[in-house]
Simulated scan of single mutants.
Amino acid sequence: MSKLPRIASIALIVTAVAAGQALAHAHLKTSSPAEKASVISPGELDLTFTEELDLKFSGVKVTDPGKKDIKLGEAGLKDDGKVLTVPVPTTLAPGDYTVDWHVLSTDGHKTSGSYIFTVKP
Score class of each variant (00 low, 15 high):
residue 65 P to V: 01
residue 10 I to L: 12
residue 115 Y to K: 06
residue 40 I to Y: 11
residue 101 W to H: 10
residue 22 A to K: 06
residue 43 G to V: 10
residue 71 K to Q: 15
residue 57 F to E: 14
residue 101 W to A: 13
residue 98 T to R: 07
residue 3 K to H: 02
residue 93 A to W: 03
residue 86 V to L: 11
residue 23 L to I: 12
residue 2 S to K: 08
residue 54 D to P: 01
residue 107 D to W: 01
residue 117 F to H: 01
residue 104 L to Y: 08
residue 21 Q to W: 14
residue 17 V to G: 07
residue 80 D to H: 11
residue 13 I to W: 00
residue 81 G to C: 03
residue 8 A to Q: 15
residue 7 I to F: 02
residue 70 I to D: 13
residue 85 T to V: 14
residue 64 D to L: 04
residue 6 R to D: 07
residue 10 I to V: 12
residue 104 L to Q: 13
residue 30 T to W: 07
residue 69 D to N: 15
residue 109 H to D: 15
residue 34 A to N: 02
residue 22 A to N: 12
residue 52 E to Y: 05
residue 31 S to F: 08
residue 86 V to R: 00
residue 4 L to E: 04
residue 115 Y to P: 13
residue 23 L to W: 13
residue 41 S to G: 03
residue 111 T to G: 07
residue 105 S to A: 14
residue 39 V to S: 03
residue 23 L to S: 11
residue 71 K to E: 11
residue 77 L to G: 06
residue 26 A to M: 02
residue 47 L to E: 13
residue 113 G to W: 08
residue 8 A to K: 11
residue 61 K to G: 03
residue 18 A to K: 09
residue 25 H to R: 13
residue 92 L to F: 06
residue 55 L to H: 11
residue 14 V to F: 00
residue 8 A to D: 06
residue 118 T to S: 15
residue 74 E to A: 14
residue 52 E to D: 09
residue 93 A to M: 11
residue 106 T to Q: 10
residue 70 I to M: 08
residue 4 L to H: 04
residue 30 T to N: 12
residue 69 D to R: 07
residue 100 D to S: 08
residue 70 I to V: 13
residue 106 T to K: 15
residue 40 I to P: 04
residue 99 V to W: 00
residue 29 K to Y: 13
residue 51 E to W: 07
residue 10 I to Q: 03
residue 90 T to G: 08
residue 68 K to H: 09
residue 21 Q to R: 09
residue 12 L to M: 06
residue 80 D to M: 02
residue 64 D to F: 01
residue 23 L to K: 07
residue 49 F to I: 05
residue 103 V to P: 06
residue 54 D to A: 14
